[in-house]
């Protein structure tokens, strides 16, 4: 167990290093000379001498390895550079907008969990009934609805037609309802279907049959045996889905003008504010990797077989 955790931690460090390298490599795709971009933003038509001076100031005249090391050293001090647009440190800009995005993703994640599990269990209990068939159809369609279609549909129905909830901004808690639902719903439907089919699969196992022959209550079998087993692969996926939630938050924030990181990213892409884009990608990847690391450890706690079987399958 400890050995497994140590191995995973080592992997985490290696991946984070790789992530920083790849993010750095992304800068190679920047169109044009970054020094010129910065100068051009100031509104002056830069002369050759200005560009060379700016390159020196930005460290662009050094070798690529030196530039990477310099950049990585700053990262470790949480220095992501300064925004081209505002001139403020990127980290300050991010700190300012992070809570709004966290509010959205955390809310969606919780909503997804509290709806998906009961509905999936309900579908298992109601197996082969019309209730199940209709739930099946609804979850299938919502699962295939892109966040922006769902968001705009909900916005029209609930804000415009029914006038139940406000649509744009984040002034009151009511403002967050639609964005959270939009973000959570397609994912929740995916999970409902997954959890349902997993439970049904586990209920088919030999040990479930044997538990039945021992006359245990169906409730005991479902909740204390089948659910845990059905959940292990799901927990694994949840870490990965968090990535989709983070990605989905960009779209949702853009529909509902939610003043979070996603919206900021879109504005920065429009402004060609590269330090912000890089910082955003790096931050999201780090969060994503860290969460998946925790998920791995948590699964190990759920399924004691994992540390022993890991690596054998590869």
């Amino acid at each position: 167990m400890w050995k497994y955790a140590a191995k995973k931690t080592l992997g985490l460090v290696a991946i984070l290093f790789g992530v920083s390298v790849l993010t750095f490599v992304l800068t190679a795709w920047i169109r044009g000379n970054p020094a010129e971009v910065v100068l051009g933003r100031a509104g002056v038509d830069p002369s050759r001498a200005d560009v060379v001076m700016m390159e020196q100031r930005m460290g662009l005249d050094q070798s690529i390895v030196a530039r990477y090391l310099d950049w990585a050293r700053n990262l470790l001090r949480l220095d992501f550079g300064t925004s081209y647009t505002s001139g403020l440190p990127v980290i300050e800009e991010i700190k300012y907008r992070l809570p709004a995005t966290l509010h959205l993703t955390a809310g969606a994640f919780v909503l997804m969990l509290v709806t998906a599990v009961p509905i999936a269990i309900f579908m298992v209990v109601k197996k082969d009934s019309w209730t199940e068939y209709s739930l099946n159809a609804v979850t299938f369609i919502v699962m295939g609805t892109p966040g922006f279609v769902l968001g705009m549909g909900l916005a029209w129905l609930i804000s415009v037609r029914l006038r139940l909830l406000p649509m744009v901004g984040n002034k009151t808690p009511a403002h967050s309802v639609l964005p959270i639902i939009t973000l959570a719903l397609p994912m929740a439907c995916r999970y409902i279907r997954l959890i349902r089919s997993n439970i049904i699969e586990v209920l088919d196992e030999d040990y479930i049959f044997l538990l039945r022959t021992r006359g245990l209550k169906e409730r005991t079998i479902l909740f204390s045996h089948a659910l845990k087993n059905a959940f292990i692969p799901i927990v694994n996926l949840m870490g990965i889905s968090l990535g989709s939630l983070l990605g989905g938050s960009i779209v949702v924030e853009s529909i509902f003008s939610w003043p979070g990181l996603g919206n900021y990213l879109m504005i920065s892409i429009g402004n060609r504010d590269y330090p912000v884009v890089l910082a955003y990608v790096l931050l999201m990847a780090t969060v994503f990797v860290a969460i998946n690391y925790l998920v791995d450890l948590f699964i190990c706690f759920l399924d004691p077989r994992i540390p022993f079987t890991e690596g054998k399958g590869r």
């Binding site: 030999d206 044997l210 021992r214 006359g215 209550k217 045996h225 845990k228 077989r305």
Partner: peptide, 25 residues
């Protein structure tokens, strides 16, 4: 009634011993 009989009056053992026990408990 059947549930009450199962296990206590009527027991069963099956062949596949590995899959006959819950693997994660």
């Amino acid at each position: 009634e059947l549930k009450a009989l199962q296990g206590v009056e009527l027991g069963m053992i099956t062949q596949e011993a590995l899959s006959s026990l819950n693997p994660v408990r």
